[in-house]
Design a binder for these strands. Structure first.
Length: 574
RNA sequence: GGACGGGUGGCCUAGCCUGGAUAUGGCGGCAGCCUCCUAAGCUGCAAGCCGAGGGUUCGAAUCCCUCCCCGUUCGCCA
């Protein structure tokens, strides 16, 4: 279905071309843009045609404006500063926007099912410790992208790749099975991930200082790589315990993943081995003196000291990226589009993976979405060193703050209800503050920013939402009406305009992975609604009551869709 | 040293891909607004050589070049 804006642009294009013909400049190049100034809806800058027409832009704009009569959706045309400005008929915009929102409801902003299967892999943190805020962008960006794509119409599957292979999980397993509980620091909470990470840290420390421990861990790793089923299942068991803790954290911020794929599977089912065989047979393959195999990727735009990408160790065992290749080949079978949400440290690895896929004759590539790490003012976070802020602690702090806020302003709510709302607000604040900034921008974690509840924040959107709920609750029964002749106030028009843009925001977020557009848009909706709320009486209005309530209803739908996309709760009161 | 990303009022941030009118929004600061639908709100004010310098263009935060600062990376780790 064509949106109001698409239809309007089409009419503007038609009118502009006709006008150019009339003034003897048919075929002139022009652009249509959204004005950065003024109240018009679309504009045609007349600067670029100025040279060939040998006329001042201002004069061209004026001539063009004079050559166009308002018709159809075009309500008025005017020339200003060398721009030809078009204003859309507000009545048409209002009626079509409201009708579409009421008709589409929770699907508003989307496009209907498109049948394209998308696999979004996100989070995939090593199961060696709790999720810390340095990595917290991953689940939040990934989950938001998945939700936006779902709304847009994709058939989305989210997936977590569990690294149950390699030195790190072996160290953890050794620690859990060999260090007595009294030798590790007491965990600050009982969740498995928090309880287990102490063993991981202790094992790392012991390994560094005690050659005997180092040898024991090396031995365990050798048995693991040799396929010792007892060792493999021990490691898997530890990883599973850790993962259960991670899942709990993810659930608490409304992130649920559809599929968990274990890395060890690609060793067990032989697909990693088959990748090795195919790569070895390729023209780019080489072998070190000691037997390690590599691809030389100098022809694939990989630059640096070393263009080699090693895919087996000297002993022939596979490496992480080798197994990741098998994993991607598997994902390609299951989805039409494969998206990986990755930390910026994976950039080279991802590029090597794409080159290797090409060498394997695979025509498809994963689409990578990279984000920069969140660091602390004193430097980067490290699970091993214990220099971290855990996501669980951030959530607790945010919920506690939200609880205090509610208790200070509400006396009519039950304890249970206040706790429930506090959780919705606290979690919303965290998700919003993280997804707000474009992924590639580095972030420095500060408690006061992370816990911001005012202005450009999650609770700001939720608060506007509760206002819509409260008004509709108090209004009781009413007859919905999109009669545009009764919604002519500037605040009403501004609100309708903002609501009408939701589809294009979702399009950009979903198609280009620009998820930070969603919170920015949500803030605009909430802010425009708050201005309307402060200036236009609704419940006490008479002649326009139904139309205003209908507009409030539409705002509620859009805000709820935005909140859903952001994985934030929509509280009826707060 | 190479590669990739970031640098926008005191602080955080949008815009950059696709050049265009007075550079977006927030925090903090200052001054106002609750006899009206929840003040987690609204209104107003102060605050900017868009990292620096060149170039292209009628026009540059946006494109190109050089340089500076920050982050990531250049493992037979994951």
């Amino acid at each position: 279905m064509m949106s109001v804006h698409d239809d309007f642009e089409k009419e503007v294009r038609g009118a502009t071309e006709a006008a150019l013909g009339k003034i003897g400049a048919a075929g002139a190049e022009y652009r249509i843009e959204i004005p950065s100034a003024g109240n018009a809806d679309l504009a045609v800058p007349c600067f670029q045609m100025s040279k060939s027409m040998r006329k001042a832009p201002k004069a061209i704009a004026e001539e063009l404006a004079a050559a166009i009569e308002p018709a159809g959706m075009i309500a008025s045309i005017d020339a200003l500063n060398g721009y030809l400005n078009f204003t859309m008929d507000p009545e048409i915009l209002t009626r079509r926007t409201i009708d579409e929102i009421l008709e589409s409801g929770s699907c508003y902003g989307g496009h209907g099912k498109n049948g394209i299967r998308v696999n979004v892999e996100h989070t995939s943190t090593n199961p060696t410790g709790p999720i810390h805020v340095g990595r917290a962008r991953n689940p939040i960006i990934g989950d938001t992208l998945a939700r936006a794509m779902k709304l847009r119409g994709y058939d989305v599957t989210t997936e977590y790749y569990v690294n149950d292979v390699g030195k790190q999980v072996v160290i953890l397993t050794w620690g859990v099975n060999n260090i007595p509980p009294e030798d590790v620091e007491k965990a600050d909470r009982e969740k498995a991930d928090h309880a287990l990470v102490a063993y991981y840290r202790a094992a790392n420390r012991m390994m560094e200082s005690d050659p005997e421990v180092q040898e024991k861990i090396a031995d365990l790793l050798r048995r693991f790589e040799a396929g010792d089923s007892k060792v493999i299942s021990e490691v898997r068991k530890t990883a599973q315990r850790m993962l259960d803790g991670l899942k709990e954290t993810l659930e608490s911020i409304n992130v649920g993943l559809d599929v968990y794929t274990w890395e060890s599977r690609f060793i067990a089912d032989g697909t990693a081995r088959s990748v090795v065989e195919q790569l070895t047979a390729s023209d780019y393959a080489g072998k070190e003196d000691d037997g390690a195999c590599y691809l030389d990727l100098k022809d694939f735009g990989i630059q640096g000291k070393n263009t080699k990408f090693t895919f087996t160790r000297a002993d022939g065992t596979t490496l992480y990226t080798t197994r990741d290749l098998a994993y991607h080949l598997d994902k390609f079978k299951r989805a039409d589009r494969v998206i990986d949400v990755l930390g910026e440290d994976q950039k080279l690895g991802s590029k090597q993976l794409c080159s290797a896929l090409e060498i394997l004759g695979c025509e498809r590539k994963p689409e990578a979405l990279f984000y920069s790490f969140v660091s602390l003012p004193e430097g980067k976070m490290s699970t091993r060193k214990g220099v971290v802020v855990y996501l669980d602690d951030l959530i607790d702090e945010a919920v506690t703050r939200a609880y205090e806020e509610i208790r200070s302003r509400r006396t009519d709510l039950s304890e249970e209800r206040m706790r429930e709302i506090a959780s919705i607000i606290g979690v919303g604040a965290i998700r919003y503050n993280i997804v707000r900034v474009q992924p590639e921008k580095q972030m420095i974690f500060k408690w006061e920013d992370a816990l911001n509840f005012d202005g450009n924040s999650g609770p700001f959107l939720q608060y506007a939402y509760t206002r819509t709920c409260s008004m509709l609750r108090k209004a009781g029964e009413f007859e919905p009406s999109a009669d545009p002749s009764k919604l002519t106030d500037e605040y009403e028009t501004a609100l309708v305009k903002v609501l009408s843009r939701f589809g294009s925001v979702i399009e950009e977020a979903a198609e280009e992975g620009r998820v930070h557009m969603i919170p920015a848009y949500g803030h605009e909706v909430a802010s425009t609604f708050n201005q309307f709320y402060a200036s236009v009486p609704v419940l006490s209005s008479d002649r326009e009551r139904n139309e205003r309530l209908t507009l409030v209803m539409c705002t509620r739908i859009v805000l709820r869709n935005v909140l859903t996309c952001l994985g934030m709760g929509a509280p009826e009161e707060m």
